[in-house]
Amino acid sequence: MRPSVPERAALAGLQLLLAAFVLLPFFWMVSVSLKPATEPFAIPARLWPEAPTLDNYVTAFRPEFRTYFVNSVIVSGATVAITVTLGLLAAYSFTRARLVLITALMSLVVLAQMFPHAAIIIPIYRMMRGAGLLNTYAALIIAYVSVTLPVAIWLLRGFLGKMPVALEEAATIDGAGRLRVFFEIVVPLARPGIIATAVYVLIVTWQEFLFALSFTATREMRTLPVGLNDFVGQYGIRYGELMASSVMVSVPVIAVFFLLQRYFVAGLTAGAVKG
């Protein structure tokens, strides 16, 4: 049945309202990023700069930015790969094992997600130092894997729990090894869930700031979120360059997200439904 004309108009209006709510800050961000450094902020705020320029983007796209970008890609990429792999292994057993301890263990996984990072960062720093990992990619990757694993396990567990066990049982009866069953049946079926979890982990690690700041020392090892702070001084912010950099930082993730959107939605559904 088709909605009536007034109903459709109302829905279209709501859609516009939603888009405006979401886009206003972005619009502002882009507007500020195009404002020449010499043009002061107007009162009342001007929606669009008088003489838009790409100067801030030229400044922001420094050699350091490229280094930060590569670092972010390496760290986020490795984190996604490791978290999803380990999360998948664990989630599988969390749904399939009939171990006495399984519920308690799962509660511990959820509880781990509640630890405030500011309270555990110094002990983690000490361990990294003890292992000689400070100022390496490994330090960041290990830290990011740890903090993203609980949610990854949670999401994947929901997804795997919804998958029928019958297929696996049939394959086991055929004499296939447990690992083969896992890799040849479970993993392909779980692909939407895996992609969904991967995007979640990517978005979280791409933004992470506190660990990245603490565990890296040199400019050569910094990631993008820390690099953005080059434009935040002790007493003032260089808004134009900061906003231009922010736009550049966001674009890659947005691109990845749009490419994988379809899988992501499907994966989270399944993951979340089970809970």
Binding site: V22, L23, P25, M29, F209, P225, L228, S250
Partner: peptide
């Protein structure tokens, strides 16, 4: 479009 805010780095 609706997903954009989630993608934007938190500090920004």
């Amino acid at each position: 479009i609706v997903l954009l805010p989630w993608v934007l780095p938190g500090v920004v």
